[in-house]
Nucleic acid binder design. Structure first.
Lengths: 130, 130
DNA sequence: CTTGACCTTCCAGTTGCTGGAGAGATTAAG
DNA sequence: CTTAATCTCTCCAGCAACTGGAAGGTCAAG
């Protein structure tokens, strides 16, 4: 159980220093203890929670969802169904986004392919947009 | 060439009134002419440009990219290669996003499937995040 | 003892809007 | 003609989730 400064914690957690401070500012993680000089100090547990948040964010969970997940993470009485509910919701959002992106892709790819891309002003992409 | 108020223009363009004002505020489209009472008035050309922006935004082009595209739209001397360059760049971004989303999806789907989602606290999703 | 890398706080900016307050204009009904 | 509803205006604030920078305190090395 050793205590480190914010830069070491940030490296260990894989998050920018600014972000580490920010997460405590908004109360997503606990306010860290301070050294006599007022420096933030982090222990293993604090770092592990930051890692948890980084991974959750990487999955696209919003800060509020991370707050919820973190609550479940720290709560020994949680049920796995609670966690699964949140993750499934997020999974559906991902799938929705994938469908949107796919149609966007297809449309745009079609336009790009049909555009000769030469020195002429005539352009099907512009025609479509206008 | 008839002139309409902002609400009619907004309906015709398929954009919220606030957004129509906003696009002129940031100089994305020209500041509209005003009635004697100070009401914004829009003609066909102004509306068509708003439609152009709405469609471009729907393709995920940023405001700055829309500015660029709009410049090309209004410029008779443009070459189709200029337009194609921007659209291709955007297409690559979409494809990158698709790849990211796909791996995210696969990972999360794997976790969700492996989680029983019962009343027990044991949960592979939490285990993975923590 | 100075240099330079840290650390602190606070404020402002990013992107693309959106909401609301407060005030004036216009329109439709009674 | 009045009144009420529905525009419209401007300006200011806020959303998410940070990020950048200024001004200043601290610490370890040489």
């Amino acid at each position: 159980m050793d205590f480190v400064n914010i830069s070491a914690a940030s490296k260990a957690a894989g998050l920018p220093v600014k972000t580490v401070r920010y997460y405590a500012d908004i109360g997503l993680v606990d306010a860290p203890s301070r050294s006599s000089a007022g420096y933030r100090t982090y222990d293993d547990v604090a770092v592990r929670k930051l890692v948890f948040v980084r991974r959750s964010r990487a999955f696209g969970f919003s800060i509020e969802e991370c707050r919820e997940l973190l609550g479940l993470y720290q709560n020994q009485d949680r049920t796995s169904s609670e966690v699964k509910r949140i993750a499934s919701k997020r999974l559906e959002e991902i799938e929705e986004k994938q469908r949107e992106l796919q149609s966007l892709h297809d449309e745009l790819a079609h336009l790009v392919t049909s555009c000769r891309g030469d020195d002429m002003p005539d352009c099907p992409i512009i025609d479509y947009l206008g």
